[in-house]
Computed example of a mutant assay.
Amino acid sequence: MIRRAVVLASLLSACVAPATTPPSRVPTETPTVGVQTGAATASPAASPLTTPVYQNAAEGYRLELPRPWRRSCNSTESQLYPASTIVSQQIFVAASERDERWGSGYPFDGVIVLVVPNPEKLPVEQWAAQGGLGFAQTPEAPVTRATLDGRPAVAAAYEGIRGEQRQDIAVTSGDRAYVVTYYLTSTDQTNVPAMKAIVGSFHLLTESERASTPTAAPLTPRSPESVADALAAGFAKKDVTALAEQLGSCVLQGSYGSDASIAPAVAYAEELRRDLAAGLAVSVSPRPLLEYGGDSRYVRSSWTRPGKTAEEVDLLLRANGDRWYWAGAVIR
């Protein structure tokens, strides 16, 4: 049997995986980091002069995103991890959707907000001393007292596991802990002011602020069978618009037994449009729907490019609640 788990592992490795067993540590006595609360209100569409705001009512925070910074498609909720491990991980980047592509490391600078359980409702220093998940992920990282959003916090600066330079700051609130990180992938400091501003704007929402946040319209349920049928019809007609309607926010590409990459749906659809225009022919077998593992399924397809041998490609389907979507293409 083909090792499909390898591709799922590659997908997860592209995300910023929190450390699972960090050592205990206690912050030093001298406070070295202090950041301020973000603006009370702002709207992404209010004015060209207004700094857009990312607000996550479900996880209880917001932060400002100066243009061109935006939420990456390589963000995740708990469905990619055990529910007891993380709650949410959002990544913010300055790269455009068309330029964003993730592999096994960090292709560009970014800001991460990691939300993890704090079931014992520990104060932040005690939480960190007990090995706070996702915070100060190397044993030698010095931990200092800090403030974030006017709250007691702990901070750490260190080199990450892939050579990136990380600056973490963490707070706790009730049964959640929040680790806000910015990281540099090179010695280029160009993005540091913007990243510090994003971290400094982090704000934990009050109950009234949560309640006043507009709620997104519920997604229309969609079965895996309907997605498979739409892919078969879309490829038969070379209808990229119809195919793009089946995509999730991020698309996995790779082959079994090798590294995978993920890119925003916009970039993948453009690539698909170019390939189809250049003569790519895809034949999809919408049945049977095959088990991929977890909440995933796949259907088989054959991709033929002019002058080349046909490739057998598994089309990965995943679910967001009761709405299924096309999540990737994996070469056998």
Results as ranks from 00 to 15, higher is better:
I2S: 10
A5F: 12
S13Y: 10
A17H: 11
T20D: 12
P22C: 00
P22T: 06
S24W: 11
R25G: 13
V26G: 05
A39S: 14
A42G: 14
S43K: 02
P44V: 06
P52I: 06
V53P: 04
V53W: 05
Y54I: 00
A57S: 12
E59H: 14
G60W: 08
R62T: 07
W69P: 01
S72W: 08
C73D: 09
S75D: 05
T76V: 15
A83Y: 11
S84C: 04
I91P: 00
E97A: 15
D99N: 14
F108K: 12
V111A: 00
I112A: 09
V116Q: 02
W127N: 04
Q130R: 15
P142V: 03
T144W: 13
T147P: 03
T147M: 04
G150T: 05
G150M: 05
R151M: 09
R151L: 12
A157R: 14
G163F: 08
E164S: 05
D168H: 12
I169C: 01
S173K: 12
A177W: 07
V179E: 09
T185Q: 15
T185H: 14
T185Y: 12
S186G: 02
D188S: 07
D188R: 08
D188H: 01
D188A: 08
T190Q: 14
V199Y: 05
V199Q: 06
S201Y: 05
E209V: 04
R210E: 04
P214Y: 02
T215R: 13
L219K: 12
R222K: 13
S223L: 01
P224G: 03
A228R: 06
A228S: 00
D229T: 13
D229P: 04
L231W: 01
K237H: 08
K237V: 05
K238I: 07
D239C: 03
L243I: 15
A244G: 01
A244W: 03
E245I: 02
Q246S: 12
S249K: 14
C250Y: 04
S255L: 12
S258W: 12
D259R: 14
A260N: 04
A260G: 13
S261L: 11
A265S: 15
A265I: 06
Y268F: 14
A269D: 01
E271F: 01
L272K: 05
A277C: 05
A278R: 01
A281L: 11
S283I: 13
V284W: 02
S285A: 15
L290T: 10
R297S: 12
S301T: 07
S302L: 11
S302F: 08
W303R: 07
P306G: 00
P306Q: 02
K308P: 03
E311L: 11
V313M: 06
L315G: 02
L317F: 01
W326R: 03
G328A: 00
